[in-house]
Design a protein around this nucleic acid. Structure first.
Ligand SMILES: [Mn+2]
Ligand SMILES: [Mn+2]
Ligand SMILES: [Mn+2]
Ligand SMILES: [Mn+2]
Lengths: 217, 217
DNA sequence: ATAAATTTTTAGACTAGACTAAAAATAGTT
DNA sequence: AACTATTTTTAGTCTAGTCTAAAAATTTAT
């Protein structure tokens, strides 16, 4: 499998959002910052290889074999992210780009040894679950901070959009995985919130609260 | 820089053997398991980029810029080998293939953090020196075991041909970096030797003794 | 110094992956 | 239902990197 093939499989994995929904060529092309015609080419190739179920004009989804391959890439990506943050002290906003390369290293043995070295983590630095060798993920029920009622106490479990600027902003405010968040106020007209996070009071926009996953205590 | 370009630069680095000797296209092609015509193509390209000094029919050698790039790849290769052996407990015969991939990961920050994480090692698991950020290597004077006189006591400092089968064989015999070797006997007709290594007596062929670097005590 | 053998380069073809432009299919609108 | 707008596919082109076969240069041998 080439790097390009792997990137397409991974994109399909993320876009189908676990409910093996059909993905259109434009969605796929947008995600990979390429053109729909290129996506069509690749989908036809991956269909030939039985990694993708693709029907002209109707979109594509991963085959079970394709999903397994994709989950292995995601597994590697997230394990390397843990390595970079836990062992090399990178910030969570710096690791995605590097993991994007490391995920393509081919060595099953390496993955398992890395996993063990890291203490078999179940989530990556952004709160996303790490698939096991078989591609299974333990899904932790989490809800959006935006949907929490006033007075509720929660713990920050994940970031929806792991954009580097967004992650940097969160770090600056001292917002990180495991932070305790209590909703103090919610403005009905623009859904902005006043929250207490690890003791300090913060005012946050709707954009922010819809990109943060929390777990109710 | 593409992966292929990097592999060509690295091959030139190793073949020119520090004395910036001219390297022929066939040598280069053999090393990279490709054809001379492919090597010619790439040399012309790298010459265009001023990374290689190449003159038709006369061979090629690295420019100072090219040598610097090459040394950075070698640096990465060897640092990753240290990581794999020291942190992930791989055997020294297993790491070359994986490092061959890892050496192409692009992130200067990663290299420096990895270096620090590993305690800034100066040699890799096969006894080869790790170039610093500027491409400088600390050359430790070592000689071939084959050239040692009878009765001399030495320490194993490196392996010349890091072929996986050879490394596995050495491990099986308990031969590793740092082992104390005393030459007990030398047969004049075929240069085979009887040695004492870490207490045990071993009979070794010329092939073996010409692939082991030692330092005299 | 010529001729033969070897090495090196060129020319032409191939694949993976991407792109543009045009054609075909689908979806949306009157 | 027919027309329009959008999406998707096809056709053709491009680059990187490889290969084979042929041509050119160099080296070796006579
Ligand atoms: Mn990737
Ligand atoms: Mn992540
Ligand atoms: Mn390599
Ligand atoms: Mn090595």
């Amino acid at each position: 499998m080439t790097r390009a093939e792997e990137n397409y499989l991974k994109a399909l994995y993320h876009l189908s959002d676990h409910n093996d929904a059909m993905v259109s060529t434009t969605e796929l092309a947008d995600r990979l910052e390429t053109k729909p015609s290129s996506a069509t080419d690749m989908l036809q190739k991956l269909h030939e290889k039985s990694l993708v179920a693709y029907t002209k004009y109707k979109g594509a989804k991963l085959s079970s074999e394709g999903r397994k391959k994709a989950s292995q890439i995601v597994r590697k990506h997230r394990l390397w992210e843990v390595f970079l943050v836990d062992k090399l002290n990178f910030g969570w906003e710096e690791v995605h780009e590097i993991a994007e390369q490391l995920e393509h290293i081919k060595s099953p043995e390496l993955v398992e040894r890395l996993d063990e070295f890291l203490g078999c983590p179940t989530t990556d630095p952004h709160g996303d679950p790490i698939p096991d060798q078989k591609g299974h993920v333990v899904t932790i029920s989490k809800s959006l901070l935006a949907d929490q009622p006033v007075e509720s106490s929660t713990i920050l479990m994940g970031i929806k959009d792991s954009d580097a600027d967004f992650l940097t902003y969160l770090s600056q405010k001292g917002i990180k995985l495991g932070s305790c968040i209590t909703v103090l106020e919610k403005e009905p007209f623009d859904q902005s919130m006043t929250i207490e996070i690890d003791g300090q009071t913060l005012f946050i926009s709707k954009t922010l609260s819809t990109n943060i996953y929390v777990q109710t205590l």
